[in-house]
Design a protein around this nucleic acid. Structure first.
Lengths: 269, 269
DNA sequence: CGCACACTTGAACCCCCTCAACCCAAGTGG
DNA sequence: CCACTTGGGTTGAGGGGGTTCAAGTGTGCG
């Protein structure tokens, strides 16, 4: 519980010294925008996204910078190699980040959901594609707008660093999984991870604490995420099922019967 | 270059030319220790590390914050799970980042060299270990010192974000490799990547442009990096050798005979 | 109903792992 | 000087986990 230098709670105010190509601070007629409640005010994921760095009384400026966009399931709204013109923040739904090989093989590097930031690119092009799995709603920011936001609210960029840092840790974890774990361990790790995002629903019978995991993605997506074929996913799920560790839940979900055993099977002890 | 957004053209390992002509820094009382030449002044990797955000006349403060430390080959100077008390910047040598499974299996998530930053942790603990491969020299910064540096030189933190961003891209590339590529493709990709770090040595015979790649790490390290066994590394190298794509070089190096074919074999076309 | 689509199941194969021996260069010590 | 050890790398034989190909089973939707 120590003060993290790089990430959380950075109090230091400092003037961002970037030449912002003519963009200057006071763009706002604050009174007018302030009157009506900004759309950001009612945004649930705002609290966990990097937007939390914007104080309540400044939400109007945040709202003015971003445009809310709906995306249909299956639609790609970011393409590897395309010009990186926008940043996105997911406000609703689930999407997948993926990289492709020329021959069509693909690897999903992560699933993103509420509050996740998209569009970090070190060059002028995106290095991966993003495709909506469920119905997705997101906030789009042009690069200049986002730059302006960072200039106005330096804390935002600090939160972004913390977020990138978090993703790096997850990526390293995934590399360990892909490089060194067996199919059963991969699937177990995957389920344990998603179990952590679901609240445990105590069984009415009361015998054991079960966890219902909603899996929005297809078997094919799971395979592309875990580096295995769809058939192997199916077979391995069955193995876990006959072992009594999990059970199929209605509507593309999985009911975890024995989290402890699942964790043991994940290889992480 | 082009209009710079948050992390444009920022590359932690290679030159970042975000020079800030006409930028003013916060208060910064003029250092008294300006007289003697600071050790940072003669530091080669400084230009490519996040230290490049510190202007020349302020190098004394940078020098005061960091402590230069030598590390013997094979020595671990960061351990997964340990309290994250320090940040490091590699000024010389090569080290490996690794994550371990309880049963001993391990995955190397990346190799780091001159100018690379280490120690980003989102919690109070390191999420991976770092072990020196060659003789390594690095600069150690305590968290409070680093925090102070970030407060004094905000550009440093921006460069850090760019660096983390770059590592994320590399991590995604590696996930694609680990999840979807065959052994031969992995090794080819690995060699192509390291060939990019070596300057091509034109063959005296003049027949073809060859590239001598110095590989400081062992076969075991290569295996742990590419997610394959050491025997498979050895066998696959031989396959490439008899195919005439590479040749063994004296002193643990590899001579790339046909970069084009190697790239074709890497699966990236 | 019938088509489409996702998932499951089955059987054969093969790439890579596992285990084991071997090679070779560098110490080390008598 | 040679015997011995040690550690990294190579080579060989065999087996298995996961892929590949193919067919079968739902299930939603026109």
């Amino acid at each position: 519980m120590r003060t993290a230098a790089t990430s959380e709670h950075c109090n230091s105010r400092f003037g961002i010294e970037r030449r912002d190509a003519g963009l200057s601070f006071p763009p706002a007629r604050p009174s007018a925008a302030q009157a009506l409640p900004s759309k950001c005010a009612g945004c649930g994921p705002r609290q966990i996204a990097i937007c939390a760095a914007v104080p309540e009384q400044e939400l109007a400026r945040l709202s003015a910078a971003g445009i809310s966009v709906p995306i249909e399931p299956g639609r790609r709204f970011m393409e590897e190699g395309e010009a990186a013109e926008n940043f996105f923040i997911v406000t609703n739904g689930t999407a997948k980040l993926l990289k492709m090989l020329p021959d069509g093989r693909q690897q999903i590097t992560s699933f993103v959901g509420d509050g996740d930031f998209l569009g970090l690119a070190l060059s002028t092009q995106y290095s991966y594609s993003v495709e909506a799995i469920t119905q997705v709603r997101l906030c789009r920011f042009s690069r200049p707008r986002m730059r302006q936001l960072f200039a106005d609210f330096p804390l935002m960029e600090k939160r972004l660093l913390a977020s990138a840092c978090h993703e790096l840790v997850l990526a390293q974890e995934q590399m360990l999984l892909l490089g060194r774990k067996s199919a059963r361990e991969r699937l177990a790790s995957f389920l344990v991870h998603w179990a952590g995002k679901s609240e445990p629903t105590s069984l009415p019978g009361g015998s054991r604490k079960q966890i219902l995991v909603k899996l929005p993605m297809s078997r094919s997506d799971i395979g592309d995420y875990l580096g295995m074929q769809i058939e192997t996913v199916s077979r391995t799920l069955k193995v876990l099922k006959v072992a009594g560790v999990i059970a199929t839940a209605p509507g593309w979900g999985v009911m975890i019967q024995d989290l402890a055993r699942l964790q043991a099977l994940s290889g992480n002890v």
